[in-house]
Structure formats: structure tokens, C-alpha cells
């Protein structure tokens, strides 16, 4: 193998590429005249830093790291620091969407993080409740009997006759088609009924008075004859019953407000010039 061939083969090696690229960068910086500060090529790990590494490890593993584990953490930290510094020297932190977003979200978080330690007083929550009681009202709860009639696409096959018979005292337990749905739901809230029978069926229940058999009421399964037994209407909730939900909503809204305010304060100190093409 001639020298030239050897050189050509060597140039195909990835490691050689890496070294050449490194050399090129080094030459570039040397040429640009940015002298590398020898201090910035010194990495000093202080005792406090070691303690911090160990403490963070301990929080994940619930025990302090052993000596070899500490050594591993330090090795990893040094590696990260070397790459980090060299990366900064090369300007790799510039124009990086991920780094920019990350710093932005840290700032946004800082604006509202103090909120964690705050709790709103009763008056604040009561005002929130009074403003929109409907949003905090408990679901209506229904107790009823239902007979299922298998009917494709809502055909009311025989439902009217069955209804007449029922209201004359026919035994409802013996009527209807089999299906895996509860026949006599007991004090079930509207949301749950909508999940099991479908939204349309749940909405229909509000119009059925307790006492007589009524229907047919369509659901996603077919038709139902329904005898309402008891309706517990949704009432205006008391503060104590919905306190957590009120507090959650207060917190979510306050986070938004504080972020907006913090941003506005910062923005006010800037002059923004926009050249539109």
C-alpha cells in the first residue's frame, strides 16, 4: 500500500473526520484570535458540588450514593461540563429553539411558582361560586326502572301497546329484550347515565315525571320504556362541598393572570422595533 493509498483509506475513517473537524475548529478560533482563557479549561469540582450531586441522586434513590456511585456521578458531571463549555465556545446555545423554549418556560414558571404556597380565603372562593353556581352544581340523580326493546334505527315496534299494558298493571319484570344494562338504576348521577346509556337518553330523563311508565325513549342501543321513581334535582352547592374544585379553578386562573402580568412588566421595559418586509 503506497503512502497515498494509506492516506486515502485513513481519510475514510470516521474518527479521522472527527479529529480533522476538531482541528479545523481549533484553527478557526486560533485564527479569529479568541485566545482560550486557560482558567476556562480548568474544571474544579467543589465539595458543595459533590454534595449537591449526591443529594440529587439520593432524592431519586432514597439513599445516599456509595463511593463508586459518587465517582460515577462526578465522571459524568465532568464529561457534561467539558462538552457544555466547548459547545458554548462554539456558540451551540445560539438560535436553538429547544434551549430558547426551555428558558422561556422556566421564566413562565418562575412567574407563578410562588402561588403553590398560597391559599385563597373563603370570601374569594364564595365570590367565584356566586359568579357561576351552575358550573359547580352537582349532577341531578335519578332512580328509575327501564325496559329495553331491541329496535334497529329507532323503529318503535310494539312499544305503544307495551306501554298501555304496563300502565294497566302488567308485570314489567317479564317484558322486554335482554341487554347488559342495569334495569333499575338507583340514585345514579346524570353523567354516569350518559356514559352507560348515551347522552340523548340522559337528556330525555329530565322530561319524565315520576310515577307512570313513559316512553319509548331512544338510546344508542334501541328503545326504552322508563318508569321514573325518584329525581334528586341538582341544587346550588355549598362552599364546603365544592371547595377543592373552586380552589383548582382559582389557581388555574391566577397562574394565567400572574404570567400575563409578569410578562407585561418585562415587556414594558423593552423597546420593540419591527421592520416589516
Amino acid at each position: 500500500m503506497s503512502l497515498r493509498e494509506r492516506l486515502r483509506a485513513a481519510l475514510k475513517e470516521p474518527l479521522v473526520h472527527f479529529l480533522l473537524a476538531g482541528l479545523a475548529l481549533f484553527l478557526f478560533f486560533a485564527w479569529r484570535g479568541d485566545a482560550v482563557d486557560p482558567e476556562s479549561r480548568t474544571i474544579t469540582i467543589t465539595e458543595q458540588q459533590v454534595e449537591r450531586l449526591a443529594a440529587s441522586w439520593a432524592q431519586t434513590w432514597q439513599r445516599p450514593p456509595a463511593q463508586d456511585e459518587i465517582d460515577g456521578l462526578i465522571r459524568d458531571y465532568v464529561k457534561e461540563e467539558v462538552y457544555y463549555r466547548e459547545g458554548l465556545r462554539m456558540g451551540l446555545d445560539q438560535d436553538d429553539t429547544i434551549i430558547r423554549r426551555r428558558i422561556r418556560s422556566k421564566m413562565e414558571f418562575l412567574a407563578s411558582s410562588e402561588l403553590e404556597n398560597e391559599a385563597p380565603d373563603d370570601a374569594t372562593l364564595q365570590a367565584l361560586l356566586d359568579k357561576n353556581p351552575q358550573a359547580y352544581a352537582a349532577d341531578a340523580r335519578y332512580s328509575f326502572d327501564q325496559i329495553y326493546l331491541a329496535a334497529q334505527d329507532g323503529a318503535a315496534a310494539g312499544a305503544a301497546e307495551m306501554l298501555a299494558a304496563l300502565n294497566k298493571g302488567a308485570d314489567w319484570q317479564k317484558l322486554g329484550d335482554a341487554i347488559s344494562l342495569p334495569r333499575s338504576p338507583e340514585a345514579v348521577d346524570r353523567t354516569r347515565i350518559a356514559t352507560e346509556f348515551g347522552e340523548d337518553f340522559a337528556a330525555s330523563l329530565a322530561g319524565i315525571k315520576p310515577g307512570q311508565w313513559a316512553g319509548p325513549v331512544p338510546s344508542g342501543f334501541g328503545l326504552h320504556l322508563v318508569r321514573m321513581r325518584k329525581v334528586e334535582a341538582s341544587a346550588k352547592p355549598k362552599l364546603a362541598e365544592v371547595r377543592q374544585k373552586l380552589e383548582n379553578d382559582w389557581r388555574a386562573q391566577t397562574v394565567k393572570d400572574r404570567e400575563a402580568k409578569a410578562y407585561q412588566t418585562l415587556l414594558d421595559s423593552y423597546t420593540i422595533r419591527i421592520a416589516k418586509p
Binding site: I179, S180, L181, T195, E196, F197, G198, E199, F201, S219, G220, F221
Partner: peptide
């Protein structure tokens, strides 16, 4: 083995 359709599906 038993399967009931989605109430709205």
C-alpha cells in the same frame, strides 16, 4: 365472552 356496543357508537 360478552360485548356490548358503545352507547353512542
Amino acid at each position: 365472552i360478552s360485548a356490548l356496543k358503545d352507547a353512542t357508537g
